[in-house]
Design a protein around this nucleic acid. Structure first.
Lengths: 371, 371
DNA sequence: GTGCTTGCCGAAACCGGTTTCGGAAACAAC
DNA sequence: GTTGTTTCCGAAACCGGTTTCGGCAAGCAC
């Protein structure tokens, strides 16, 4: 094995063999065990020896084979991401960013990401279970968390570490990273009120998602602070088409809103359509504000005023948090992080051009005119 | 170890221990080695013995630990997916579907998916390299392939198995799954010609992507077959904003097109805007057809006529192909597959309401009218 | 000088599998 | 009955690491 020029790096079959811990042992004159302990920071290794081992390891380009470590330590150095595939969820415009954040943060510490998809319900248990059983993942990142999420219950039972992108109802023993969606909505509504709006409607998303409730609370808080009665909350608007319908309904009311805040951008863009259909102008007659920061929003006319989230940073933070949790270095409650969304001002909101009553009148006139 | 009720499954610390091959050996009265060979189909195991081992394995719920297998076999039973993260690529609406296809197909054979992201250029080499070195992936799926893709060169050099979603210029020794985008465009243009269109423009996407060229060839073929001169091909339109600009330019020409075919949906939706700005009606004055099938297209008004791709099926097929390649069961050239896109007819195309000349006239009149 | 720690490392077992090798038993051929 | 062949399985090495255990030598107190 040992040659004059050092360690053999190329096998007889021509394939380049990896540098193993045995090579390091031969090169340093120590045993495998000692090298291993030196690299893993055991206290019973002399400081000089450790330094020497590390130098040699660096020179030879040694990289421990994660699989081999796993069979003894039980840790695969892999994070798991299990995505729910439900029917009404064709849009995950940020998945790429999110994955980029997770994988680069994990990769910089030598960890990788294992992705799986699971149907809702029983199938999901199986997927999580087999990933844990096969040690393909040491812990999980859960995104798009529900208020009561079956994944959470299951992982809790199995005592498998996990972190949440978003929050859920019962937060005991849970680590999470989330965006202050409630604060964003509150500040946004406040902004509209300061502009002069009084009749502000709110259009939510799926009730099963936790973020829906947080953002709604933010809206209600801002209205309450201003002493306004939040009359119009439309629930469960999940997509573009839903946004069209909800907005049509709102505009058909006796007292139409002069501003509409949407929990998701898609719904807001649907709102554009309904507003234009009614012969009104987005941003002047009816102000629109939303949340997410999808690219389509910037292309819309007028560009959508919306709260943007740094999805990539979220992914990176979650990866780091999960690794900490897996290592057991921190209590779950110590690993919680809240970040702020940032408002990107387009042209879709502004001071109301006319009062709600005048809006009603304008729509009635137009209806008469075109008929 | 052996108890009256069978094998101990729970360790003293309360953690449920996995069933190892040693358990199987004890239960069957054979040795570890024999059990291993029985499960892996070695020819020197009696048929009866193999059947018995398999029954016991099934009863005990034995699942070999992939990591342990990997250190001897050198195979981690993991597929790799390395995504390029470039700046101008915020849209991967199908990533979820694609991942769902890959992971479910891989999972059904006991394989998992390791995802990594890499910047373009040198960083990508490093990511691929370390994934291979660390045996975190036995092979790779490359999506969004370029005509000349550095990833391909590198993996070829490293002799690492890989499959392509899409094709590239030099196909020797390459396995791929692709959609017949050229055929789709050709049939689509043919449809427009049959409807009566003669002035048809074509708006492409990024030149570095191979699909751009294939679809353009389809367009040119259809035009040539009909004996029409394809005057208007606009290159390198990558997104919504680009679609707006390109379409404005096309409509400003002396002989404006009565139909525009876009290589990607996003650009087509940008085209909607430009067409409406010009005072024209999508589907009547100017027909629009595109390719991808993004959800926003169905919500547009009129709904976009576009070629839809079954991304999930593509992912599943690629996973199966890659596993075959890794196992070395088939020659690369034998693993190639082409699927068809399906046309989803919205209301954005139809017989031309007026000729190109009349279109010009109408636009000129309107410009005069509003000025 | 003796006895007791302490620091540091080697030896060897171990993790959960795979693979090679050799040999016993069964079978066939002569 | 002896001599090959097969058939089928046990024994043990092996993969690349980690972890336990024990012991040697130096350092310290007495």
């Amino acid at each position: 094995m040992q040659t004059a020029t050092g360690i053999k790096r190329v096998r007889a079959d021509g394939k380049s063999a990896r540098v193993t811990i045995a090579h390091l042992a031969a090169e340093t004159g120590l045993t495998k065990g000692t090298v291993s302990r030196a690299l893993n920071g055991y206290p019973d290794i002399a400081e000089g020896t450790r330094a020497r081992v590390e130098r040699v390891a660096a020179r030879l380009g040694y990289r421990p084979m994660a699989q081999a470590q796993a069979i003894r330590t039980g840790r695969a150095k892999a994070l798991g991401l299990v995505m729910q595939v439900s029917e009404h969820d064709g849009h995950s415009p940020f998945l790429t960013d999110f994955l980029a954040g997770v994988t680069t943060a994990a990769g910089s510490q030598g960890w990788t990401l294992t992705v799986a998809t699971a149907p809702t319900g029983e199938g999901m248990r199986d997927v999580l279970h087999s990933l844990v059983e096969d040690r393909k993942a040491d812990g999980f990142i859960l995104q798009r968390t529900l208020r009561q999420d079956p994944r959470i219950e299951y992982l809790r039972d199995m005592q498998v570490p996990f972190v949440l992108y978003g929050r859920c109802e019962d937060l005991t023993g849970i680590s999470y990273y989330d965006i202050r969606g409630g604060a964003a909505m509150r500040a946004g509504v406040r902004r509209l009120i300061d502009m002069g709006h009084r009749d502000i409607a709110f259009v939510t998303s799926g009730c099963e998602y936790n973020y829906t409730h947080l953002r709604t609370e933010g809206f209600l808080a801002a209205m309450a602070e201003a002493g306004l009665a939040p009359t119009d909350v439309v629930w469960d608007v999940r997509d573009h088409a839903g946004g069209v319908r909800a907005t049509r309904d709102l505009l058909a009311r006796e007292v139409p809103p002069t501003a509409i805040v949407y929990v998701i951008d898609q719904a807001a863009l649907g709102g554009y359509r309904a507003i234009e259909e009614a012969g009104l102008t987005v941003g002047a007659d009816v102000s629109v504000m939303a949340y997410d920061g999808i690219p389509e929003g910037a292309y819309a006319s007028p560009p959508l005023t919306t709260w943007k989230v740094d999805t990539r940073a979220a992914g990176a933070a979650l990866a780091r948090m999960l690794i900490e949790r897996i290592k057991g270095e921190a209590e779950p409650e110590a690993l919680r992080w809240l970040a702020d969304a940032t408002l990107h001002i387009g042209g879709s909101d502004g001071p109301p051009a006319r009062t709600s009553a005048h809006l009603r009148q304008k729509m009635n006139n137009q209806k008469g005119g075109t008929t």
